[in-house]
């Protein structure tokens, strides 16, 4: 007799789900080590396409794109996280105030408007105000749509922190600033790190909006990869993909560990 939790067929479905999710990624990972120049035949294990990414004819282009992607992701995630921390303090600790639900909708607006619409709107806006599309416009757009991604984990964490900790600190002669710096900020830190990592990945990931507001000559990794695969999938793209995949996995693992540590300090 199996319990009420068991449904026949659900296990195969879950396994199928994982296979569908992972098969393409694993295949690409394997083929990135293909020694052959043709993507269809297996030419033995080799690092040659990884070497090609760093030293091949397309290397300068990918290096520039990677540099842009990473610096934009760091700057956008940092700025969005700072904005989100301030916003979450007001939203969670500020009690009731006028315009609270409107502000909540505003914070989540980038999640609700389809990406392609945000992309079009940003392009039109930047063109109209005469801002040359390029690094700066990408950065501004990324900060904007990263805010909700940074906000969600930070607000969730803050919601879980009893306000008695700050009251206890104030009761024990800490000023407002001290109560924030010594008590609230360390307690919020797991949420802040999660928010930062999420915003970082989302920025690194973005293609559609970046593609609209990047202007001519400016590339991030996704737009450079997209440009390349338009002419067909080459092995060096698979090598880049595998490296980006590895970066993503490292980041998820980090954020997972951060959360685990966060749970331990929760009273």
């Amino acid at each position: 007799m199996k319990g009420v939790r068991h449904y026949p067929g659900f296990l195969p479905m879950a396994v199928a789900c994982l296979i569908i999710l992972y098969a393409p990624l694993i295949v690409v990972m394997i083929y990135s080590f293909n020694g052959s120049t043709s993507i269809t035949t297996w030419g033995g294990f080799s690092w040659r396409w990884y070497a090609d990414v760093f030293t091949g004819p397309e290397a300068p282009r990918f290096k520039a794109a990677a540099w842009n992607s990473i610096t934009i992701a760091v700057l956008a995630a940092t700025t969005a996280t700072a904005i989100a921390v301030a916003a979450s303090l007001a939203m969670i600790r500020g009690g009731r105030f006028r315009g609270k639900s409107a502000t909540f909708a505003l914070i989540n607006l980038p999640l609700m408007v389809p990406e392609i619409v945000v992309a079009v709107a940003c392009l039109i806006f930047f063109t109209t105000i005469g801002l040359t599309t390029g690094y700066l416009t990408i950065l501004i757009a990324h900060i904007t749509f990263c805010i909700p991604f940074a906000y969600l984990p930070i607000a969730a964490r803050l919601q879980g922190i009893e306000d008695t900790y700050e009251q206890a600190a104030r009761d024990l002669y800490a000023s407002r600033a001290q109560a924030f710096r010594l008590i609230l900020l360390p307690l919020m830190m797991p949420g802040i790190l999660s928010g930062f990592l999420l915003a970082f990945i989302i920025s690194l990931d973005d293609f559609i909006i970046t593609n609209f507001v990047k202007g001519a000559g400016m590339e991030t990794l996704p737009t450079a990869i997209f440009g390349s695969v338009k002419q067909g999938i080459k092995p060096n793209i698979m090598a880049i993909s595998t490296m980006m995949l590895a970066v993503s996995v490292i980041f998820v693992t980090l954020s997972y560990l951060v959360n685990r540590i966060g749970q331990r300090t929760r009273a």
Partner: peptide, 17 residues
Amino acid sequence: IPYWVNLLIRTVSLKFL
């Protein structure tokens, strides 16, 4: 994990497969 992997890369991988 796949959710965290770049959407473009996932789509390209699928196309390759």
